[in-house]
Design a protein around this nucleic acid. Structure first.
Lengths: 321, 321
DNA sequence: CCCCTTATAGTCGAATGGATTATAAACGGG
DNA sequence: CCCGTTTATAATCCATTCGACTATAAGGGG
């Protein structure tokens, strides 16, 4: 008796074609001078990607190889995002494609040679996500009225109400608080409402007159939104920001980086207190003079904390620790 | 010019075989009378699984079909866990297998027909994870000495120290606090140290005399550990427990379910306060008499909270909300 | 009726977290 | 050289949260 799952032997689909093509796709992020950027190829409308092939030792190493080949950029920290399969392939082939997406954090610095790649700001693709200078006018002027119109366009009152509620939660209408982590829900809502060009393109329906943000190929923008949402969530409970920082930095530079990711401003004293009480950084003893005012102390990441995983914040009232 | 990623056209691997087999695999969880269970097939050594085939509309629907076919159990809530590919297939075929794993939460109640499946307790597979009745003796009696021996078995002092530190963090040695979310790290540590049978089996090395927990096929136990860790983490910030509860329940039943998942006890008054102030439940007006003591109020889940996603707990000191 | 069991409410103090104010140290212009 | 500007850094205040504990209520069984 072999030790493989029974399903692979007697399942009802065992006789049919089961082969699929597996594609690796990367959301490579860096932050430069307070501007979050993503690594693109083509006309800035495509994420680095390539098929998973026999010569790759693992999914991760396959991804690294493709990104390095297409952009000249070696990757450090990477983490799996999501695996998609329900993509509509326009060509008639009876061949499924599975996309395994990854989030990579890096620094721009590496020279990229002559590759046809470019760093583009996140907020080119999601202009409604940057709230650092206040709520973007785009939301009140364009998105809100069109989302409400989309809700009103349906017959049933219950569905219309549900649409309004979803829009209100995602985009902070009706005095709700803005939640930066809902980036993916916002993109999907705009897609449903036909407010991003991908939706009308996929549907082959009437082209929308005004659509928001720069378009990408296939579902790449959705994958980018997935990475954005994951990163905004993760910076809150894991010290991943430091993957985006130079070896030595000031606390304000660190704050600006987090603000760039979160798309909103942070209270300065409280941010410093948070960083210090978690003992995430240590002083180098040096100071930086090019701040314009009083010199700022330079810090470096305490790599030791990466292993002190034990400090995962509980949320349950556990008994007698 | 077509709109597909360039990589699929001119990559260096384009000429080689790129087809892979995609396998769907499910960790189906339920909790019955305070005992967490996982749905298995075979001799309790195999998770429900099957290949992703053309007739499946999506990964999720493919998974649902396989689980229902193999176990007769319809699935409700499911979420993607992780996609693996670096498995060693013993057979010599030059064919990669990608495993896409899912976590499903359900209730045992559904009649499962005559399928060859069984509910097994989590803690059969991970006996070191149940701390409800105190720290299992297994840890101090077996795992700790063998982990320390494994650390001592290496030449370099730095590596030995690193091994000791990893073991101490994962298993709460040296007065560290126990962290129930590290279930996956613990399994992987035991695998590295050769303390689970899968490790010695995969290595085809000397069989270990004493190994811990019930073995599973291939890497199924690792996938189960992944699901366990994910669920233990998720119950802290999303109301997923209710997927495991009957429509109506007492607060103590709810607490026992969370305790079963977390593998540790919870402070009763504080748990009640937490549930109530989050407004997760509402009274039905009924009471339950079969508690043994004073009748307990019956509650039901407020499904409205599922949409109030806005309450994602922040951890950054954001400015002026 | 007493006692045991479980349910439910309330209290107390430490710690956390958001907002604000105060002080220190550089620079540049008059 | 003083003075205003800019930025860094420290300290304070207060509301809320959270863990641990105590007290009271309401059923069943001997």
């Amino acid at each position: 008796m072999d030790d493989r799952p029974k399903a692979t032997r007697n399942g009802r689909a065992a006789a049919k074609a089961k082969e699929v093509e597996a594609e690796l796709i990367a959301v490579v992020v860096s932050v430069n001078d307070g501007e979050p950027a993503v690594l693109t190829i083509g006309q800035g409308d495509c994420l680095p990607s390539g098929p998973f092939a026999l010569e790759h030792r693992s999914l991760q190493s396959g991804l690294r190889a493709w990104v390095e080949q297409q952009t000249g950029h070696p990757l450090g920290y990477i983490e799996q995002l999501y695996t998609f399969a329900d993509r509509d392939r326009a060509d008639g082939r009876q061949q499924r494609v599975i996309s395994i997406s990854y989030l990579a954090l890096t620094r721009k610095e590496h020279a990229t040679g002559a590759s046809a790649c470019a760093w583009r700001s996140w907020y080119d693709y999601f202009p409604w996500e940057d709230h650092r200078l206040g709520t973007p006018k785009l939301i009140a002027d364009v998105l809100k009225p069109r989302l409400l119109a989309w809700a009103a366009a349906v017959e049933e009152a219950a569905i219309a109400r549900e649409r309004r509620r979803r829009a209100a939660i995602a985009f902070a209408f009706e005095d709700r608080p803005w939640n930066e982590e809902l980036a993916l829900q916002r993109y999907e809502l705009l897609y449903e409402a036909g407010l991003v060009a991908e939706a009308t393109r996929d549907e082959r329906s009437i082209a929308s007159d005004s659509t928001a943000g720069t378009t990408m190929v296939a579902d790449h923008r959705r994958i980018l939104a997935t990475g954005l949402a994951r990163l905004r969530s993760k910076i809150k409970y894991r010290p991943v920001v430091f993957e985006l920082m130079p070896p030595v930095f000031t606390l304000l530079q660190l704050q600006r980086t987090v603000e760039a990711l979160a798309g909103r401003l942070i209270n300065k004293p409280n941010f410093r207190r948070l960083i210090e009480q978690q003992e995430l950084v240590e002083e180098t003893g040096e100071t930086s003079l090019d701040t314009g005012g009083r010199p700022a102390k330079l810090y470096q990441f305490r790599h030791a904390v990466l292993d002190e995983t034990a400090v995962a914040g509980t949320k349950l009232p556990l008994a007698r620790g």
